[in-house]
Simulated scan of single mutants.
Amino acid sequence: MPVKNGAKYLRRALDSLKIQNYPNLEILACVGPSIDNTKEIFKEYGIPIAYEDDNNAADALINGYRLATGEILGLLPHDDEILPGALHKVNLAFQDHNIEWVYSATNSINTDGSIHSRLGNETNVTLEMMVERNLIPTISSFFKKETYLRVGGIRKAFPYPTDYELWLKMLAVGTRPHKIKDDLAIFHVTGLNGSMDTIETTITAPEVKQLRDIYFKKLSLGAKIRVGARRYRARLKPLLKKYPIADRFLRRLHKIVR
């Protein structure tokens, strides 16, 4: 759990873990320089600080995952929450030893309780799909530590879109995510985080583009053509409205190489 000045919402996140009643839960608090009572709240819940004075989210996650002793890893930001029974559902899914990575859809909730958006609706996510957009919510994702280590883990080279890089790396080596039917978590839009769309269009945008370019090169020729056609169609959308013949040509090209 990476935290920096997270006192306002931290108890809600910790309470959501407490009510899991999961016997083998290990909570690793990775705390950045905080001027509020974040550390005192962890102490109140009997949770020791596992790592302190991290430089950014990537540093916190790298050290948190390194220190984890369990077989399954997950991330809970201090302003989000895990839904009741989620960890038992995750454990049940991993009873199938062929599964290395699970996730669920999740609601993104505004501060007034209204639904901001629905995240993670897609199933059978592939590298081709992920190159175009981050489709898997971090808070409802769990994966084997063995798999995390096999792909090289998180790198400091991409300090903000850490989850996106990890998903791309796992998909690139053939690890397919298994979607759990029930929601596992709630993503809260608090002003301290933001929706997946907002994140990709602000401070992380250059890094996201760099990652997409790197993993686009790893796609098959057919996948590259499909992705390229969709990208060009999106860029040329105003022009294609004027020239429907060109629009139909791109659509047919996509079907041919699908």
Rank of each mutant, 00 (worst) to 15 (best):
P2R: 07
P2L: 08
K4C: 12
N5V: 02
G6H: 10
A7F: 13
K8S: 10
Y9L: 10
L10Y: 04
R11P: 02
L14K: 06
D15K: 14
K18G: 02
K18Q: 09
Y22V: 07
N24E: 15
L25H: 07
A29K: 07
V31Q: 07
G32N: 08
G32R: 08
S34I: 02
N37C: 01
E40C: 00
K43D: 06
E44Y: 11
Y45I: 02
I49Q: 06
Y51E: 00
D53F: 10
A57I: 12
A57C: 02
I62Q: 04
N63V: 00
L67I: 12
A68Y: 08
G70W: 01
L75R: 14
P77E: 14
H78C: 07
H78P: 03
I82T: 13
L87T: 06
L87G: 07
L87Q: 05
K89I: 00
F94K: 08
F94A: 11
H97Y: 03
N98L: 08
V102T: 14
S104I: 11
S104P: 03
T106A: 14
S108D: 10
I109K: 12
T111M: 13
D112T: 02
G113N: 04
G113H: 10
I115D: 06
I115Q: 12
H116L: 09
R118Y: 15
R118Q: 13
G120F: 03
N121Q: 13
T123K: 15
T123F: 01
T126D: 04
L135V: 07
T138R: 08
I139H: 14
S141T: 15
F142E: 09
F142L: 11
K144Y: 12
K145Y: 02
T147N: 08
Y148G: 04
L149R: 11
K156W: 00
F158A: 04
P159I: 09
Y160A: 10
Y160L: 13
Y160E: 10
P161E: 03
E165S: 05
E165L: 14
L166N: 03
L168T: 00
M170I: 06
M170K: 06
V173F: 11
G174M: 07
R176S: 10
P177K: 00
K179V: 02
K179H: 06
K179Y: 04
K179Q: 15
D182C: 00
D182L: 05
L184P: 04
I186G: 00
T190D: 12
G191M: 07
L192K: 12
I199S: 06
I199L: 15
T201K: 15
T201Q: 11
T201M: 06
I203Q: 09
I203N: 08
I203M: 07
T204P: 01
A205E: 12
V208H: 04
K209R: 13
Q210F: 09
D213T: 13
I214R: 10
Y215V: 04
K217Q: 15
L219V: 05
L221T: 13
A223W: 01
A223V: 03
A223K: 11
A223P: 03
A223I: 00
K224G: 03
R226P: 04
V227G: 03
G228F: 09
R231E: 09
R231L: 14
R231V: 07
Y232L: 15
R233L: 01
A234W: 09
L240M: 05
L240H: 08
Y243T: 08
P244T: 13
I245L: 14
A246Q: 06
A246E: 05
A246T: 00
D247M: 05
D247L: 11
R248Y: 11
F249P: 03
L250D: 05
H254I: 13
V257P: 00
